[in-house]
């Protein structure tokens, strides 16, 4: 049989565990919500005439940053020219925020063989 002191301690511990669990769950939800609002930051390297990774899964609100590591300038340009980084010299970057209706196929305006794409996660 438990004494009243033991019962009190057990009750306190149960309450503590429940409260901590709730607090952690709530913290996780806040982080996820913030992430959903802020979006994920994707990095694409332009190196040796290749966009790397060549295909990236994104969702609206995410940001994509292209950085050129080649000696020569490149661009990241939508195939229909609806968005365009402009000329990116060695070491320069361009950041774009993903929208639901953005053109997902893109290329380098200066070197048209350089092609890549984004996959929109709904």
């Amino acid at each position: 049989m438990m004494t009243s002191l033991q019962l009190s301690i057990a009750s306190f511990l149960m309450l503590f565990i429940t409260f901590t669990g709730l607090a952690q769950a709530s913290e996780t939800n806040v982080e996820e919500e913030a992430k959903a609002i802020e979006g994920t930051a994707h990095i694409i390297e332009i190196r040796d005439f290749v966009f790397s990774p060549i295909s990236v899964e994104v969702k609206a609100g995410d940001t994509i940053t292209w950085t050129n590591f080649d000696i020569v300038p490149h661009t990241a340009t939508a195939i229909d020219h609806s968005w365009d980084s402009g000329s990116l010299k060695l070491g320069e970057s361009f950041t774009y925020t993903v929208t639901d209706d953005m053109q997902l196929d893109y290329f380098c305006l200066f070197h048209p063989m350089m092609k890549a794409n984004l996959a929109l996660e709904k």
């Binding site: 040796d48 005439f49 080649d70 000696i71 048209p112 063989m113 350089m114």
Partner: peptide, 12 residues
């Protein structure tokens, strides 16, 4: 690095 660039030009 130059060779990689010029090969791309050759393909272009």
């Amino acid at each position: 690095a130059g060779l990689r660039i010029f090969k791309s030009h050759e393909n272009h």
